[in-house]
Amino acid sequence: MSRIDLQPQIDVRRAEDRFASNFGWLDSKHSFSFGQHHDRANTHHGLLLVNNDDVVDAGTGFDTHPHRDMEIVTWVLDGSLVHQDSTGHNGIIYPGLAQRMSAGRGIMHSEKNDSWKLQGDTHTDPVHFVQMWVVPDERGITPGYEQLEIDGELLSGSLVPVASGMAQHDGASAIRIANKYAALHAARLQPGQSVELPDAPFLHLFVPRGSVTLEGAGPLATGDAVRFTATGGQRVTATEAAEILVWEMHATVAA
């Protein structure tokens, strides 16, 4: 990781410009290079390497697969997702429940759609979630898992810490990640409600649903994202019911 001198910048990325992968059972939009999609100029922002916006059909999901040296945070918007991993952890993730998996020196896990309705013999409900990956402070840590219900805190309409390794969030209702320079915040906003963004060397704002206005940059719709460098403090105001995810990062991946 690296901390460097920066010039202020606000870079708006529109939903339709994201990489896309569709495998029938999975409709995935990628904010950064992922899988078969690679752009040397779009591999990360700050410490954030992956921001995948996934919709998985009922009765399907990701079979057991490996990860290593990554802090993986999953945020469900609709439906529910079953997690199982090689350390013996399992759980059901649903809206308002934050989940973190530390891949560390190596872990195997699967994620399956657990949101379905039985109509005859047909399972019909998809699960919609955002999965985000940040690098850890250290390689080779012990794999781990944590989930935490924060639905109540989101009722306030304020920006709520969801996952953090930063000292100022010690004791807050947030899952812990193994990076002391990064924190994920979320807000659920009704029309007219607004929040102020943190001030940090690197911010990533993602609008997984609804629409908002960003001070100084204008309207943002579902799937839009903004990458901030050496700036912050702008207000985000909902123009319709919306949910936002904000990564606050005080370092970047070393070149």
Rank of each mutant, 00 (worst) to 15 (best):
L159K: 07
P126I: 06
L154P: 03
G157A: 07
V160H: 01
W133F: 09
V160K: 00
P126T: 11
G104S: 05
V160M: 07
P95W: 07
V134E: 00
S173Q: 12
E153V: 10
W116N: 10
D151C: 10
D125H: 11
S173T: 15
Q131G: 05
R105I: 09
Q131M: 12
V127Q: 05
W116E: 11
G120S: 13
G140C: 15
S173M: 10
H123Q: 15
G165I: 01
P136K: 00
G106T: 15
G104C: 05
V127M: 05
H128C: 12
G106D: 10
Q99G: 02
E149W: 12
T142S: 13
L118R: 15
F129T: 04
I175D: 00
V135R: 02
W133M: 04
A98F: 04
M108K: 10
V135Y: 03
M166N: 02
K117I: 15
S164H: 05
I93D: 00
Q168Y: 14
G140F: 08
A98W: 02
Y145S: 04
L118C: 11
M166K: 07
I93N: 00
R139C: 10
L118W: 12
R139N: 14
P143R: 08
G120P: 02
A172M: 10
G152V: 12
H128D: 08
L97M: 14
R105P: 07
D170E: 14
A98Y: 02
M101N: 03
G144R: 05
D125V: 09
W116R: 13
Q168H: 15
A178N: 06
A103F: 03
I177C: 02
E146G: 08
S173D: 04
T122C: 13
L154N: 06
K117T: 14
Y145F: 09
H123M: 14
V134I: 13
W116V: 11
D151N: 13
G165W: 00
S156D: 12
T124E: 07
Q147K: 09
S173R: 09
A98D: 03
M166D: 00
V127G: 04
W133K: 05
S110N: 10
Y94Q: 09
A98Q: 04
H123D: 09
L155N: 10
V160R: 02
T122Y: 15
I107R: 00
H123I: 09
G152H: 15
S164K: 08
S158E: 13
P161M: 05
A172D: 09
Q147Y: 06
W116C: 08
K117Y: 14
G106Y: 09
I92L: 11
H169R: 10
T142A: 14
S164C: 11
L148E: 02
R105F: 08
A174C: 11
V130R: 01
T124I: 13
L97Q: 13
L148T: 05
V135N: 02
D114T: 12
P161Y: 04
D114H: 14
Q131W: 06
A98I: 07
D170Q: 12
A98L: 06
A172S: 14
E111K: 07
S102G: 08
